[in-house]
Measured scan of single mutants.
Amino acid sequence: EPLWIRPDAPSRCTWQLGRPASESPHHHTAPAKSPKILPDILKKIGDTPMVRINKIGKKFGLKCELLAKCEFFNAGGSVKDRISLRMIEDAERDGTLKPGDTIIEPTSGNTGIGLALAAAVRGYRCIIVMPEKMSSEKVDVLRALGAEIVRTPTNARFDSPESHVGVAWRLKNEIPNSHILDQYRNASNPLAHYDTTADEILQQCDGKLDMLVASVGTGGTITGIARKLKEKCPGCRIIGVDPEGSILAEPEELNQTEQTTYEVEGIGYDFIPTVLDRTVVDKWFKSNDEEAFTFARMLIAQEGLLCGGSAGSTVAVAVKAAQELQEGQRCVVILPDSVRNYMTKFLSDRWMLQKGFLKEEDLTEKKPWWWHLRVQELGLSAPLTVLPTITCGHTIEILREKGFDQAPVVDEAGVILGMVTLGNMLSSLLAGKVQPSDQVGKVIYKQFKQIRLTDTLGRLSHILEMDHFALVVHEQIQYHSTGKSSQRQMVFGVVTAIDLLNFVAAQERDQK
């Protein structure tokens, strides 16, 4: 057995438009009618409502009807409940999964919650491996369901041993009777949507819809739904939504950006999952974080739909894509998950301010006199920076000697690579993860907040409520011999709460 199987392995699926269902090699399930009293909570997966979006479509000038398939009504709160249950049931049916076995899954959280929910009911041990950027709410729900959680670096490539995929496979090879159901490759993922989600949409719309818009992560949702719609409703256009920084969209030119990270969760990847059939997507749109969270908040405030950030991405694209539809036509959007997962993220004004998705003037509360002053007023001194090749031991000596707790790590040209902190280095040394002679590049981390000289002290204040420091950066445009230009970030300084307090105190003292 291989040590790991690539999540982007070539698909062996034989589905073709027009091929009889009787030739399918898979076990198919028909939607079942729910009894009045459910035998367990797993029976509350599927049969989610279709809700008309009344205000947002009109606000953006849509002539067509805009409908939302509300997947956050599933038992675990997301569309991923469907595939989690289906993968477990299919693994039980073919004898792969037996009582007492362990389920391991690399996930952005929602599939993990679905699997942990099913594992709690069915009696399996469950280990979820997820990147650090995923919300604390997801972690809390997983723990409450009895799952064990392993976190991995957000910026690790999918084929790196440190990625959530790599760590999951390492655990599988170490733990007896453990299984990775593997949402990236498992046919049960798109089949769950082909058999149930798509049929529900067709039934709820009486077979009449002209466009379907869905955000894409593993691709199982859009693949399964689109294949069924292509068979039953061939005139329906399928629109895929991919965040900026991901590479799922086609044509490839759409993916060209210097951005590699994004805040919206559960969609987009740096590889093409095996289950994603991009041939059934008629057109791709890219979405960005700001519009995703703005539209998610709009869905909550104006439509009462308590959905997550990827739902915002989907609707932001839908109001663009559906401009081509006329009166009497219908566009369906998939709202994948609930706001429950993001209470401390985009639902929080403070978080939105820190990330730059909300401006101070958007909030009406009274601010102190210094709130709208610029960061450049602080008069920061030149920063202490270190090269990635310097040793951890030497870096600790320098920081202690100069009285700093942290320093930016830059390359020879001064471009920011990340940050090192005294606390992080000492804990890594004590844990045996690094040696004093190791290069400081081994303990770089990139989960820090950046701020510009033109940003306000109010925004800085919000950042420092949650973080010990902020890195002050400025952009530099560099022209190359080819005539092309590129933008790079340079370090201007490091600012802490002490710097802000000293500035405010000094100004008030001078005024007296």
Rank of each mutant, 00 (worst) to 15 (best):
Q256V: 14
S486I: 15
E324W: 07
R400Q: 14
D499P: 01
V264R: 00
V264D: 01
F285H: 10
G309F: 00
P251S: 09
R297C: 00
K484T: 03
I247L: 15
Y445D: 09
S348P: 09
G245R: 06
T391S: 14
A311P: 05
Q329E: 11
V410A: 13
K484Q: 13
S246I: 00
N255K: 04
E253V: 15
L276F: 07
N288Q: 15
I416P: 08
A296P: 01
A301C: 09
D362N: 03
D455F: 05
G266K: 02
I416D: 05
G458K: 07
D349G: 06
A382G: 15
Q302W: 11
L378G: 04
K402S: 12
S348L: 06
D282M: 05
P368A: 08
I451V: 13
L471E: 05
P273K: 06
V420I: 15
S287G: 15
K446R: 15
F503D: 03
T294G: 12
V315Y: 08
K366L: 15
K512L: 14
A318T: 13
R374Q: 05
Q487S: 13
R350N: 10
G308S: 00
E252R: 12
A316F: 13
R340F: 01
M490Y: 13
V415Q: 12
W369M: 11
C307Y: 01
Q478F: 14
V504L: 07
W370H: 06
L399C: 09
W371L: 11
L464R: 04
Q487V: 14
P408K: 05
Q302P: 03
L500K: 00
R350T: 10
A382I: 11
D438G: 14
V315M: 10
E412V: 12
P273R: 06
Q435H: 15
G304K: 02
G393E: 12
E361K: 13
Q326S: 12
G403L: 03
A413L: 15
H468F: 15
L460A: 07
R278T: 05
K283E: 14
K320A: 11
V339K: 06
S461V: 14
A382E: 14
E244W: 02
K283M: 11
T260D: 14
Q406F: 04
R488N: 11
F492I: 14
V420D: 04
E401M: 09
Y262M: 01
H462M: 11
W284K: 00
A470W: 01
Y342S: 02
D242Q: 03
G240L: 01
D282L: 06
F271P: 00
W351R: 04
R400L: 13
L430T: 15
V275Q: 02
K286H: 02
E360W: 15
E508N: 13
D467A: 15
V317S: 02
A301H: 08
N288T: 03
T279M: 14
S485M: 12
L500H: 11
D277I: 00
E291I: 08
G309I: 03
R459C: 10
L399T: 06
R297I: 05
D499C: 08
V472G: 12
L429I: 14
F448Q: 11
L453F: 15
I416S: 15
I498P: 12
G414P: 02
D349S: 11
V332E: 03
D362Q: 10
F503P: 13
V315E: 08
F469R: 06
V281G: 04
L457Q: 02
K367I: 13
W284Q: 01
A506Q: 10
R330D: 08
L501W: 07
A301S: 04
G245F: 02
T274M: 07
A431Q: 07
V332F: 01
D289A: 00
E324I: 14
Y262C: 05
V386H: 06
W351F: 00
Q376S: 11
V319S: 08
D337M: 03
G309C: 00
M466Q: 15
D289T: 01
E265R: 03
S287Q: 08
G268V: 00
V375E: 03
S427L: 11
I451A: 12
A505Y: 06
K286G: 00
L426P: 02
G268N: 01
S427Q: 03
F357C: 08
V317W: 06
P388G: 14
A316C: 05
L430Y: 13
E475R: 09
L299M: 07
R488Q: 15
F503L: 14
Q487K: 15
A249P: 04
V495L: 15
K320W: 02
A431V: 14
K366M: 15
T389M: 14
N255V: 04
P273F: 06
V434W: 05
I238R: 00
E250S: 12
Q439S: 08
L254W: 10
A316N: 11
I463R: 07
D270W: 00
A311Y: 05
E303N: 07
S381T: 15
M298N: 09
V281T: 10
P243N: 07
F404T: 07
A311Q: 05
V333Q: 02
K366Q: 11
V495A: 13
G328F: 09
M298Y: 10
D455R: 02
M490V: 14
K355D: 02
G245I: 00
L363R: 09
D242N: 04
L358F: 11
S461Q: 09
S428V: 15
Y269M: 01
I498H: 03
L335E: 01
L430E: 14
V275K: 01
E327G: 06
D289M: 00
I463H: 07
I247H: 07
G268H: 00
L248S: 04
R330A: 08
K359V: 12
H468L: 15
S486L: 14
S287W: 01
Q376V: 06
D242Y: 00
Y342P: 00
R488K: 15
F295Q: 12
K433A: 13
T279P: 15
V409Y: 08
M425H: 12
V275I: 09
Y342H: 04
Q450G: 13
I300G: 00
D282W: 06
V275N: 04
A505Q: 08
Y479G: 12
T454N: 14
R297M: 02
T456V: 15
G432E: 10
T385H: 08
Q376R: 13
M490K: 11
F346Y: 05
K359R: 15
E401I: 11
Q507I: 14
G266M: 00
F469D: 05
T496D: 05
V410P: 02
S338A: 08
I390P: 03
G308E: 00
G266S: 00
F404S: 07
S427T: 12
P251D: 02
G418Y: 07
K283D: 09
N502S: 15
G240R: 04
P436H: 15
S381Y: 12
A249Y: 05
W371C: 08
F469I: 13
L500W: 07
L384K: 10
V434R: 10
L429M: 15
V315R: 06
P273V: 06
F469G: 14
G493E: 10
R278S: 11
G414W: 08
E265T: 02
G266W: 01
F503E: 01
Q450K: 14
D499S: 03
G308D: 01
V409R: 00
A497Q: 10
N502M: 10
C331E: 00
E412M: 07
L399M: 12
E401H: 15
Q326R: 13
Q329T: 08
F295W: 14
Q354T: 10
F285M: 02
P336R: 07
F285W: 03
V415T: 15
F293C: 02
K355C: 05
A318Y: 00
L417V: 15
Q326F: 08
G356D: 03
K286V: 01
P243C: 03
T454Y: 09
L306E: 05
I239M: 09
Q489L: 15
V264S: 01
P383F: 08
I416Q: 05
K359L: 10
E253G: 14
Q476G: 10
V317I: 12
L417S: 15
V494L: 15
L384Y: 05
E365W: 13
K366P: 10
Q323W: 13
K320M: 14
I451Q: 06
A322M: 01
K359C: 14
S287Y: 04
R509E: 13
Q406P: 02
T456N: 14
D362S: 04
H462E: 13
E397N: 12
L422Q: 04
K345Q: 06
M425L: 15
L387S: 14
Q302V: 09
P408H: 02
K433F: 15
V410H: 13
P368H: 05
S313F: 02
V264M: 11
E303M: 07
L464H: 07
